[in-house]
């Protein structure tokens, strides 16, 4: 049962991430390879605030959001001057720089040693310790996040992002500022990544920079590529598929000596086949370019 609860918690955290990233990738059409940066900033900021400053969970999460939003703004202003392949490369560079900082700024982050013993969340004086309680916390934050994001998806803001994605010049001709719109989307998506990072850190009670690498950014992007971007259902399908598929492969009964490698190969092969059969994702309406 604990195993299922753990999977549900991880799916909840990744849903917050994928729906946040959907705003930039699915609606804005910007292929970002640095989303794990904001996930990591949220995790580290809230952890350090709790461990070193001694403030409680909720204020730490909120301050983590503010810090991630400021970072997203500072990163977004130069990065969003680029489009297409150049934007991908710029975000790749940002991902590598931030990872290197997290890894080498040992005085602050403890670098590769990570930060153990992260306190359990305390909400309204109640300490959340069991998996059930944690699942409820993740569920509540997920519901709140989705409520906000779905409003944004359907609001003129979401429509304007779609218009910019489909034809930037035409949308600009209608009076939409690409720089402002994309920057808003970038900052808002960072807010949700930071929230997910704080939840993750408080759940696993240990973080180190390897949780927020380029691999993680690619994994998050793959969730949208597999599930589908630019709508409400795609991130859900992608998250569930990408988290449960490797788990399902555990039950194939492969010999222990080859099981991990074969599972990875099957996982990779499945993704390749999927891209051939459903290039817009399992439930997507927009093909990420």
């Amino acid at each position: 049962m604990n195993y299922i609860l753990h999977l549900l918690i991880m799916i909840g955290i990744y849903l917050v991430l994928s729906y946040g990233l959907n705003l930039v990738v699915g609606f804005g059409g910007l292929l970002s390879l640095c989303y794990a940066v904001f996930y990591g900033i949220g995790a580290y900021a809230s952890t350090l605030l709790m461990v070193k400053v001694g403030i409680s969970f909720i204020p730490a999460v909120l301050l983590g959001i503010v810090i991630a939003a400021i970072f997203a703004f500072l990163i977004g202003v130069p990065a969003l001057r680029f489009r297409g392949d150049s934007f991908v490369l710029v975000t790749l560079g940002i991902q590598m720089i931030v990872f290197t900082i997290l890894y080498n700024w040992v005085d602050l982050t403890r670098g590769p040693y990570g930060i153990p013993g992260i306190p359990r969340p305390v909400v309204a004086g109640y300490e959340i310790t069991s998996l059930y309680e944690y699942l409820i916390l993740v569920g509540v934050i997920l519901l709140f996040s989705l409520s906000v994001l779905f409003i944004l998806y359907n609001a003129p803001f979401g429509l304007a992002l779609k218009a910019l994605r489909d034809d930037e010049m035409a949308a600009e001709g209608l009076g939409k500022s690409p720089v402002h719109m994309f920057l808003y989307a970038f900052v808002i998506s960072a807010v949700f990544a930071s929230t997910a990072g704080s939840l993750y850190a408080a759940y696993v009670t240990y973080i180190d920079p390897t949780s927020f690498t380029l691999d993680e950014s690619i994994f998050l992007l793959a969730i949208l590529l597999v599930g589908g971007a630019g709508n409400r259902i795609g991130p859900f399908v992608g998250t569930v598929f990408m988290i449960l598929l490797p788990e399902a492969l555990r039950f194939l009964g492969l010999p222990d000596t080859v099981a991990p490698n074969v599972r990875q190969m099957i996982y990779g092969l499945t993704l390749i086949v999927l891209m051939f059969l459903r290039p817009q994702g399992l439930a997507g309406e927009y093909r990420v370019k």
Binding site: L159, K162, A170, L174
Partner: peptide
């Protein structure tokens, strides 16, 4: 555009994936 210049581009000017009503909302944003 907001100061009063309306511009219709030569290329595709609508967002095909959303409804007519949403396109008008977008135009008025």
């Amino acid at each position: 555009i907001h100061s009063g210049i309306g511009y219709l581009l030569q290329s595709e000017n609508i967002v095909p994936g959303i409804t007519v009503d949403e396109n008008l909302t977008l135009g008025g944003y």
